[in-house]
């Protein structure tokens, strides 16, 4: 276990380093002249002023010095957005409650729903229920998030006035919080339910023919016990690993589309804004957060793996 954690930690640091470097270089290459000073100074600035800003921010230094300085500021929380001048860390902190509410709520919904849908489709394989569920998950997989969002906003929001049209209400007002998140949760979950339930269905159908399932039946367990304790527990392995990665990406700002359709000003929305304004520091910080979540949840998932399937050893 200790060796596993140390190895994981080393991989994690390496990945974070590589990802930050790639993002940093991409934006240095992209910025006009490789120097954000011109943008910071504004259109009417004299060359002398641009130079002053350049020196102040250290844009005149070699790229690797700039990189390490930027990263230093990101980690000690003293980096300021090139675009708005706000502290990046506090901007992310401001967006985090929205994104966490969206991600965790939707994550629970899509995980549980796809287990129910996938199991139902598998035990009714080939029959009417299975066909209907297959058609539904196919449509779910083919549905663009922003189109589904637009449909919900128009029909349920404007036409039927069932849901609020956009915005986020803090958790301090639980009823309104829930009210404003129902549509975004649904929108974000549909795609994942489609993917997960189909994977779970085929894994269950594979597992049903395994020897240990026959043994479980032979020793007289009820159908329900066989299904829950033996088949489902083993079939959950691929779903759990996918869930970890997807949830990590959504927490780290991956729900850009959902957040922008519903005007939820979370981390994804911030990432989108920072790309549009070439705000390297903000984007770098968010990408670091995403990568951190991905690597961290990846490690947690591997521990869960070993719990679900005793044949898997941590090494």
């Amino acid at each position: 276990m200790a060796r596993f954690l140390v190895r994981r930690l080393a991989v994690m640091v390496g990945m974070l380093f590589a990802i930050s470097l790639v993002t940093f270089l991409l934006f240095i290459v992209a910025l006009p002249g490789g120097n954000p000073a011109g943008m910071l100074a504004g259109r009417l600035a004299t060359p002398a002023e641009v130079h002053l800003i350049s020196v102040h921010y250290g844009f005149d230094k070699p790229i690797w010095v700039q990189y390490f300085r930027t990263m230093e500021h990101i980690f000690d929380g003293t980096s300021y957005s090139y675009q708005s001048g706000f502290n990046v860390l506090s901007e992310i902190e401001a967006g985090l409650p929205t994104t966490l509410s969206l991600a965790l709520g939707a994550g629970v919904i899509w995980f549980l729903t796809s287990i129910v849908v996938g199991t139902l489709a598998a035990i009714k394989a080939g029959r009417y229920t299975d066909r209907v569920l297959t058609v539904l998950s196919m449509i779910g997989v083919s549905m663009p998030v922003f189109f589904l969002g637009a449909i919900l906003i128009y029909y349920a929001g404007y036409k039927a006035s069932l849901i609020p049209i956009s915005g986020y209400v803090p958790l301090s007002n639980p009823a309104d919080w829930l009210w404003h998140l129902i549509a975004p949760w649904f929108t974000l979950s549909v795609l994942f339910i489609g993917i997960y339930s189909r994977i779970l269905r085929s894994t269950i159908l594979d597992t049903i023919n395994e020897d240990f399932v026959r043994t479980a039946r032979a020793k007289g367990l009820s159908q329900r016990q066989v299904l829950l304790r033996h088949i489902l527990r083993n079939s959950l392995v691929p779903i759990v690993s996918l869930w970890g990665l997807d949830l990590a990406q959504v927490i780290g700002g991956g729900a850009i589309l959902t957040e922008s359709v519903y005007s939820l000003h979370g981390v994804g929305y911030l990432a989108y804004q920072s790309v549009q304004h070439f705000d390297t520091v903000t984007l770098l910080s968010i990408v670091m957060l995403t990568a951190f979540c991905v690597v961290l949840l990846g490690a947690i998932v591997e521990v869960l793996y070993a719990f679900l399937d005793p044949r898997i050893r941590l090494q």
Partner: peptide, 14 residues
Amino acid sequence: AYPAVLLGIVLGTV
């Protein structure tokens, strides 16, 4: 490790 959409908009914008 990048979310697909985020990597897409980064590259697209560049």
